[in-house]
Design a protein around this nucleic acid. Structure first.
Lengths: 343, 343
DNA sequence: TTGTAGGCGTTATCAA
DNA sequence: TTGATAACGCCTACAA
């Protein structure tokens, strides 16, 4: 494989000059010389060796995407794809490469990610999904390694993050149901160890409270520990408690459960998603949902990370992007369903 | 950041010894010495610099996944996720890193991928999806760079590949419909510039022929040029021609079209997928489909690539993994639908 | 069993 | 405007 020295020899210049041509600086090169160099590069089909360049420059121009959950064999991993697309897009536009880090061997998170950081495999790390342990993220950030979290943040810690606005999303969704006349609104939540679990619940309660609708614990189901999908029993118990509408971040699964329980959407119960899955649009009953700007979250997270890498940290440490309410057919005005007046 | 020299000094040994400890060879190290070295590494929180190691070893222990289509803003990109999971799994199990290469800027494929190959950014390349231009793949393979194609091959060229058996899959699907009593079987195909477009069509015809069912061109729709999804018009024209069952690699989309046209599945028309989408299982009418072993394809492609990298090429250049027929509810026995006897 | 030193291919700092 | 050369951090052949 041709090296910079081969090019220098062939073009009759020094390696330094070749380097300046390759990198467009830091010193100018006479255009006649440049031409000779470029031609030599062309003829030898020369491309600078990445490893050597990384070593000399002391940076890799690569970022890692840690997405431990990708190892799990569950359907929800498709959820992450849009983030990855945004990440990949922004990285490439900025001349950075993207490494996929999944910790399949399930070694201790701190050990795994610290090794990556200290070995300078990448210049910075993006953390995606809740399977990444908080202590690992916090430790790396504290050690000064460029780190950005996506789609969540760690309450009480200053770690840079970009996420959808879960509060605003859940608030909007709840308001939507209220405005359409529903009062008995069920809520299938996530464990409260995640910021989004907390935020969604608070938003739900706030929206109810503003509408003077009393909060009814029997209409709310929050798991003790993180879980991916609501169980049929969870859904059944809310139905038994008399809900006429449901809020959930797993709309497709809940829809399947409802079907299995013999309940129609929206005739028997309205359904609104808190975190759009790609499924919503293609189902027979297109689902009303709140859509997170995943691509944009990924994109902005990269841009934030690159600023951290460049030593030019952005002023805002936690960026929150608004969710968008997509009204489809699973949440028609309550009256149209011909129900009795709200209680 | 601590270097190997710092460790050597602290442990009172030479850098060579430290290196042998790190790499477990090629020379043995006395266990007392090893302990001192390991402790020094621990205390200084030392991790070998990846770039330096790559430069010295002349390999990166990373593979690239080229998936140009990821840049497109279409839903079908979720299709690739299972391959990526298999790739990521196998790579990590073998100590390799995975780089995501998407060519977002849409530079010429050959230029783009050759630069990656010659700059030794990765040790080998996996090509996923039909958006990668054939000439680029062929050229790299010819230049001796380790390359494996996933989910397709290039007819008439010796490029290593791992793919689902499209022929067997389509044959199985067609047979399934025939065995269930259908005779007027429509076929929505892909352009014939891809091996899977050809194979599926051939398999369909072969299965019909074996069952003594004449081939009817009006029941077949093949686009001139590659397209992602069948149009509603395509579907409508097959229906107008009187088909009572449909084969398609875009089952979810076709189902939506059918719904829009007011046709029920399976009452009005049976539907069988040729390339399972994740959607099939969650729809109200769970779809019969042929499932490609995507995870396994990804995994085996990595293993094949690693053998190429190791200079130990496998004997079989084109691996084909069987698809699995998943019988669900969109293709019940024809008689049960209460139709007249087959023509 | 361990130490020394040259090489991997760039970048960047000196001089000229 | 250009050339020579010392890093960058690790690996490994050669010596000891």
């Amino acid at each position: 494989m041709a090296t910079i020295r081969d090019i220098a020899k062939k073009a009759g210049v020094s390696v330094a000059t070749v380097s300046y041509v390759i990198n467009g600086g830091p010193r100018p090169v006479a255009s006649a010389t440049r031409e000779r160099v470029l031609q030599a590069m062309e003829e030898l089909n020369y491309h600078p060796n990445t490893s050597a360049r990384q070593l000399a420059r002391q940076r890799t121009e690569a970022i890692g995407v840690a997405i431990a959950g990708l190892g799990e064999d569950n359907f929800s991993s498709a959820y992450f794809l849009e983030y990855i697309r945004g990440i990949s897009y922004a990285a490439e536009m900025n001349g950075y490469n993207v490494l996929l880090l999944t910790n399949q061997r399930k070694t201790d998170g701190l050990v795994f990610y610290r090794a990556i950081a200290r070995s300078r495999l990448v210049d910075g790390l993006l953390f995606l999904g809740s399977s990444i342990p908080d202590p690992a993220v916090i430790a790396l950030a504290r050690e000064g390694f460029p780190v950005v979290m996506l789609a969540r943040h760690i309450p009480g810690h200053v770690v840079y993050s970009v996420e959808q606005d879960y509060y605003q999303g859940a608030y909007t969704a709840t308001r939507h149901l209220l405005e359409r006349g529903y009062r008995r609104i069920g809520f299938l939540g996530q464990a409260l160890c995640f910021n989004y679990g907390i935020e969604r619940l608070q938003a739900y309660r706030q929206a109810l409270s503003e509408a003077q609708v009393p909060y009814e614990p029997r209409w709310v189901s929050i798991p003790e520990t993180p879980r991916d999908n609501p169980t049929p029993e969870e859904v059944a118990s809310l139905l038994a408690a008399g809900v006429e509408a449901l809020l959930t971040d797993r709309e497709a699964v809940v829809l399947a459960h409802l079907r299995a329980l013999g309940r129609r959407v929206p005739e028997d119960v309205a359904l609104v998603g808190l975190d759009e899955s790609e499924l919503g649009a293609v189902l027979e009953v297109p689902l009303t949902t709140v859509r997170p700007p995943k691509f944009e979250v990924g994109k902005q997270a990269v841009e934030m990370l690159l600023r951290l890498i460049a030593g030019d940290p952005p002023a805002t440490q936690q960026v929150r992007l608004p969710m968008e309410l997509i009204v489809r057919q699973s949440s028609p005005p309550r009256q149209r369903l011909g129900r009795e007046e709200p209680v």
